[in-house]
Amino acid sequence: MTALVRLRLAAFLRTGRALAPLLAGLLALGVLYGGGRAQPGEAYGVSAVVLFPVLAWQTKILLDVEPDVQRRLALVLAGAAREWAAGLLAALVAGLGTTVVALVFPWLVGGVTSQVGPDGRSVAAGVALGVWAHLLALPAAVALGALASRAVTGSAGYGVAVLALGAVGSLVLGLSSSVAPWLAPPVLPVARATAAGPSAATVAVLTGWAVAWSATLLAGYAWRRRVRV
């Protein structure tokens, strides 16, 4: 399976399609951190929110680079389950790369401060919260991007619609006044928690929520891929 992961990552990088989402991500981060220095925990929470649609888009691009027939050839050689898993894993690896860029970026441009803030939280604790926020957003974004991929939607138009509705819906339903917050991945609740300083119980609930949401979408992906190859 690692062979297929490598092949797909290589195709993603060599065709230059990796550039567009990376630039979009950097642009969003530039706007985010352009306003001055912030506490790491708070800033990283917002960074995970703006990165969520970028990571989903990046996943869709990565999965769509491969021609349909090549995807089927890989499926015949590796087996269906391995072919699906390899695509998701490649997207996860690429997403981790973007996440690392997002975590390092504010330190390079002076977007975060290393001084202890008024709430008395240490910089290390803030960074740890930021890593947690990004790691929760990544699988949810990969799952959404996978559901928007051409292998599932069959046409470019539907794919973009799924991606846009999913990303916008996740943000709108995640607002604190939302009527159905559980329908969305907890990217905005996580951002609010990192800003306020979450309790252990909050961290556990939000983690469980993100895992359950991602697992549900991935199950939907696997179910659709059983019929559509």
Binding site: A3, A10, A11, L73, A74
Partner: peptide, 21 residues
Amino acid sequence: FPADQPFTVGRYLAGMARVAG
């Protein structure tokens, strides 16, 4: 054959051989 892929013949076949196990 889906030739629209950014690999050389050798790299592609080596990759597919590994994919085949």
